[in-house]
């Protein structure tokens, strides 16, 4: 699925997606600013700049929470896939919102002084002896750098040039950024918050993101332990697999395998990792005779793991056998794009 790289391949869905996204962001900032400046007005009014800093900060944090939930939600319920399709736009927009917060905070709190703003961010008084002494700004700056790296390598151009696995590992950095941000808030604004609002926001986010990831991880069938190399492994019955769909299994410590049933009676096993952005192929569907990735629709033939021409992507294939109702898989992968016999379900009618 190679193509020429342009900044964004616009289509109507992406336009609607982005309009909803930026509409939501504008609504968030507006609600925050209006409510906070009505409730504390006149002599009691807080600095509008500080309110803006907080509005952008909490908006970015909420967006990051949603981004981290989309992945597991789409694995648990594939109707969420359309949100995932353009997650890149969500991510880059979140970075822009976070950057706005960081720039405003840097100007306001670290600007206009006798020390340069950047130096001041890293020279904030404090030490690491207790949570109340830890300076919180460097953690925000660290998170910002990670998000900058992710936003600037989010394009398919980088994905193709770095390779899906390196790209994917790099983009796992989003969890590092999330962790840094939790420290940024816990060591900073949370300590000045007597209302309990920020602890609630952060805790709610962590519980939501954590539990969704756990639940989604439990969906993979793992067949563990004591498998000697070269052995065939029973992964279940063919009736458990819906036609044109797959189950995902891990055998021992090996890579995940997607076991597909298609044409009603054929069983083909392939690597679960898409060559595009390492999407979970086993959660896709066979469409027009090709395994179609749930994330962005890259396609592979079940017979040999190759993308149909003119595309050139290839994934590893696995040997499969059907004995009675049971499906057996040989856990050693064949090289990317290797044809092998597709197993037929005997006596299927």
């Amino acid at each position: 699925m190679s193509h020429d790289y342009v900044p964004v391949q616009w289509n109507r869905k992406k336009v609607i997606y982005d309009i909803s996204l930026w509409g939501g962001i504008a609504l968030y900032i507006a609600c925050f600013m209006i409510v906070s400046s009505i409730l504390l007005a006149g002599d009691e009014a807080l600095s509008p700049m500080i309110l803006l800093i907080r509005a952008f900060a909490t908006c970015a944090f909420l967006m990051l929470t949603i981004i981290l939930c989309i992945g597991p939600m789409a694995r648990l319920d594939e109707r969420f896939l359309p949100l995932l399709y353009n997650r890149r736009h969500f991510g880059v927009s979140m970075f822009v919102v976070a950057l706005t917060h960081a720039i405003l905070a840097t100007i306001w709190y670290h600007g206009f002084g006798v020390v340069s703003p950047i130096e001041s961010i890293f020279a904030s008084p404090g030490d690491l002896t207790s949570i109340s002494n830890i300076p919180f700004q460097p953690f925000g700056a660290g998170a910002l750098l990670v998000l900058l790296l992710l936003a600037s390598t989010s394009h398919d151009f980088w994905n193709a040039n770095l390779g899906p696995l390196l790209w994917k590992s790099l983009h796992m950095g989003v969890y590092l950024a999330y962790g840094l941000l939790i420290v940024h808030v816990a060591a900073g604004a949370m300590q000045e918050d007597n209302t309990g609002m920020l602890p609630l926001l952060v805790l709610g986010s962590v519980v939501l993101v954590g539990s969704l990831h756990l639940t989604a991880a439990l969906k993979v069938r793992s067949i563990d332990s004591g498998i000697a190399a070269g052995e065939w492994v029973d992964v279940g019955t063919w009736q458990e697999i819906e036609n044109d769909r797959a189950i995902v299994v891990t055998i021992g410590a090996a890579e995940r395998i997607a076991v597909y049933r298609y044409d009603e009676s054929r069983i083909a096993a392939v690597g679960n990792v898409c060559k595009h952005q390492a999407g979970p192929l086993g959660e896709g569907k066979v469409i027009d005779g090709c395994i179609t990735c749930p994330w962005h629709g890259f396609q592979y033939r079940p017979e040999d793991g190759c993308s149909p021409p003119p595309f050139t992507e290839k994934i590893p294939t696995y040997r499969a056998r059907v004995e009675g109702d049971r499906i057996l898989i040989h856990p050693t992968p064949l090289p990317d794009g290797t044809p092998r016999d597709v197993a037929m379900i005997g006596g299927y009618s």
């Binding site: 925050f32 906070s36 409730l39 504390l40 309110l51 908006c59």
Partner: peptide, 8 residues
């Protein structure tokens, strides 16, 4: 936004 904004 309303909840956090109203708890300043």
């Amino acid at each position: 936004a309303v909840t956090v904004g109203s708890n300043q």
